[in-house]
Write a protein that binds this DNA or RNA. Structure first.
Length: 702
RNA sequence: GCGGGCUUAGCUCAGUUGGUAGAGCAACUCAUUUACACUGAGAAGGUCGGGGGUUCAAGUCCCUCAGCCCGCACCA
């Protein structure tokens, strides 16, 4: 027996050595697994931000997925777990721009597009190593030979091909539509990156000719030349649709037109409203229905345009009070409510208030029937994939959320006004438009300046990582993948879009099952956040207690789907358990293993029943129960009872008839624990002088 | 407005197809230099949020009420 067993178990002296052993073995790569591993089983790691650092949310996902992969590998599956990183374009560019501004006092425009993109790319690449080495510390058995980055050559080809095919199919189009404009980030953002925040504001009622209209945004009202009432509203029955009315407004007399549309709610205020189609989705839709004029009032920087007359050039917040003052003076203010609660749209990334704008942007049409997909639209494809069970979503609640989201889905705005990312592969020359990776022959072609939404490339991830659009062996063998286990935050943003892309490009959803997990929260139930300064670094936990203990602390007792309140004490408890296991091994290994010794039948049967039970839990994705049962058996049955019974009368002696059984139970317990506590189990296994490493040993029940 | 979730021991949470309520931590009593103090044994702690129903049997299924939380939409 090795001397190291005379000391308590030391994760820090063990883990990196064991990880190296695994990497050297090559078994993370399915192509190098022994012959018995036939049936493919693949998952794709949700790619972390390339410039990020490991947080407990990653640590939890890594623990969960690695437990599944290790279990499946031991069961004889040909397992592939693909690592990768995401360029997180907006966040990464913003970060680098800020650094350059600070150190060199230069803006992105001073540097120019090419230089900035180069610098951002370099920065991303230089910090890539950090997150990757941190994932290794968790013990994740990822096939590093297949590592993918959203901006590498293969993924670029995938993004281009996806765009081109959707463009040719008429699913990607360019149009003037209302988008979410972030005046701070100077880019559009998707609906799912808009966060609504409650705010107390003033609500104004103005006299608008014969009507009283209400608004919380007086600064948008300059261009309001349509007043909308419900067709059935008796109060306005004397006005007809299309009727013109002369009235006095902010900057003088205007001609307003009466519009009758059911979108106006008679219960709301006076039942009459004016509309600002350029800066409101609801208004935009009314304007589209009646073919009304749309006029821009606010520019890209949140300032009023010349149409605002004397207020032109002012910021909206500044203009608001002044406009109200002017209307007061003119006697057009009917009433002001002080405590009006409403939601304002803000950018998740920059925190700026979103200013809806009509802009010429690129969109994915989610409603257009697709002939080669049975005339279903993308929306319908997303729905049917889950409805018909191609993608299992066993958690009822999340299924409803998914369907609800699809029903409310608008066309997806995919162009972003930043420089770092996948550039839109479209070229213009006068009125000519060409979609291609390179400019067409001839002079004067200009590429579209925008880049694609980060989620466009992320949506291709489950197959771009397998080599698509090339018909690779990986794609044949490993697509679709077994499952995805995202946090519920990302269901709409990512999961649904991967289903969309998989269904369109491959005719098959990219994974067979979605298991949505909760958020890892602080012990008091609050989110971890920079502002609360309550963050816990998983690496600190690994240093103090070991990766095995952290993995157990995150997995045990946490049913998938509900939030996890992270408790350091729990992790500490599993460190104690690791040491317990260590001492069990010391006790058993202090005895020479008998050749062909008799096994105690009842103890073996008891163990087999446990192994069967745990296997059922693993198959049903009840990892929290599987881990806890293995833990409980090893500590409170094997150590507390069986080992005690086996002790001989003399100190340190073991009854001869027990020794073979103890070896059996220890070996097989190590197997049951390996998916959860890979390091210590592999380390003890190694001391037992086995032929193979534990990672590819057969699971106790096949 | 639409949709979803949660409520079980002091705390944090498990509890699978309905079949005698579980774990970790904390607190309590005792033991002990042991494979292991990163220890062991024991005891204590629960009308499973309230009420009603189905059932031989309900923490689990149904209805209802309450509290807490979340997603989506609207917001003139």
């Amino acid at each position: 027996m090795n001397d190291k067993f005379l000391k308590p178990y030391s994760p820090s002296e063990t883990e990196s050595r064991i990880y190296e052993l695994w990497e050297k073995s090559g078994y993370f790569n399915p192509d190098k697994l022994p012959k018995r591993h036939k049936e493919p089983f693949s998952i794709v790691l949700p790619p972390p931000n390339v410039t990020g650092i490991l947080h407990l949310g990653h640590a939890y996902e890594d623990s969960l997925q690695d437990a599944v992969i290790r279990y499946q590998r031991m069961c004889g599956k040909k397992t592939l777990w693909i690592p990768g990183a995401d360029s997180a374009a907006i966040a990464t560019q913003a970060r680098v721009e800020k650094d350059i501004q600070k150190s060199e006092g230069k803006s992105r425009h001073d540097l120019g597009r090419e230089e900035l993109v180069r610098r951002v790319y370099e920065f991303a690449k230089s910090s890539e190593g950090t997150i990757l080495s941190q994932i290794r510390k968790m013990g994740a058995s990822l096939d590093w030979s297949r590592y993918a980055y959203t901006l590498d050559e293969k993924r670029n080809l995938a993004v281009f091909t996806a765009f081109k095919r959707m463009y040719d199919a008429g699913l990607i189009y360019r149009g003037h539509r209302l988008v979410n404009w972030d005046p701070k980030g100077q880019t559009t953002i998707s609906d799912d990156e808009v966060v609504y925040q409650e705010e107390k504001a003033k609500f104004y009622y103005f006299q608008y000719g014969p009507f009283v209209i209400g608004t919380s945004r007086p600064e948008t009202k300059f261009g309001d030349k349509y007043v909308v009432v419900h067709p059935d509203d008796a109060r306005y029955k004397d006005f007809s649709h299309g009727q013109k009315i002369e009235l006095e407004w902010i900057n003088g007399p205007i001609a307003a037109t009466v519009i009758k549309d059911a979108a106006s709610d008679p219960e709301m205020g006076s039942g009459a409203m004016t509309i600002t189609p350029w800066h409101s989705l609801a208004d935009f839709e009314i304007a589209e229905r009646h073919n009304l004029d749309k006029e821009q009032i606010i520019d890209k920087y949140g300032k009023l345009l010349p149409t605002a007359g004397e207020f032109a050039g002012m910021k909206i917040t500044e203009a608001r009070e002044k406009i109200v003052a002017k209307l007061l003076e003119k006697g057009l203010v009917v009433k002001i409510e002080e405590n009006y609660m409403h939601n304002i749209a803000t950018s998740e990334r920059t925190g700026a208030t979103i200013e809806p704008q009509i802009m010429e942007q690129w969109f994915i049409d989610v409603n257009k029937p697709i002939p080669e997909r049975g005339n279903k639209s993308l929306k319908e494809l997303m729905r049917s994939a889950v409805e018909n069970g191609d993608v299992e979503m066993p958690q009822e609640g999340f299924r409803s959320t998914y369907f609800h989201w699809i029903d409310n889905l608008h066309d997806w705005n995919i162009s972003r006004q930043i420089w770092f990312g996948h550039r839109i592969p479209v070229w213009y020359r006068g009125t000519e438009v060409y979609c291609g990776m390179e400019a067409p022959k001839g002079e004067g072609w200009e590429q579209d300046p925008d880049v694609l939404d980060t989620w466009f490339s992320s949506a291709l991830w489950p197959f771009s990582t397998l080599g698509w659009p090339e018909e690779t062996g990986d794609l044949k063998v490993f697509y679709p993948t077994a499952f995805m286990s995202p946090a519920y935050e990302i269901l709409q943003l990512w999961i649904s879009r991967m289903i969309l892309m998989g269904e369109f490009h491959l005719g098959k959803a990219p994974f067979k099952r979605v298991l949505i997990h909760g958020l890892v929260r602080a012990k008091d139930g609050r989110k971890f956040s920079k502002s609360l300064n309550n963050g816990i670094d998983p690496l600190d936990m690994i240093e103090k207690y070991g990766a095995d203990a952290l993995r157990m602390g995150l997995l045990v007792g946490a049913a998938i789907g509900s939030d996890i309140k992270f408790d350091e004490q729990k992790v500490k408890g599993y460190k104690h358990f690791a040491n317990k296991l260590w001492n069990i091994a010391r006790f058993v290994l202090s005895q020479e293993k008998p050749v062909g010794g008799e096994l105690k039948k009842e103890l073996i049967e008891e163990f087999e029943a446990l192994a069967k039970d745990i296997t059922a839990d693993m198959e049903a994705y009840r990892f929290h129960l599987a881990a806890e049962k293995a833990y409980h058996y090893v500590w409170h049955r094997l150590a507390d009872e069986i080992l005690e019974e086996s002790k001989g009368s003399e100190r340190g002696s073991v009854k001869a008839e027990y020794i073979a059984t103890l070896y059996y139970l220890l070996e097989n317990s190590l197997k049951l624990l390996h998916p959860f506590m890979p390091f210590i189990t592999e380390e003890i296994w190694g001391e037992m002088r086995k032929e193979n490493i534990l990672m590819i040993e057969p699971w106790p029940i096949s």
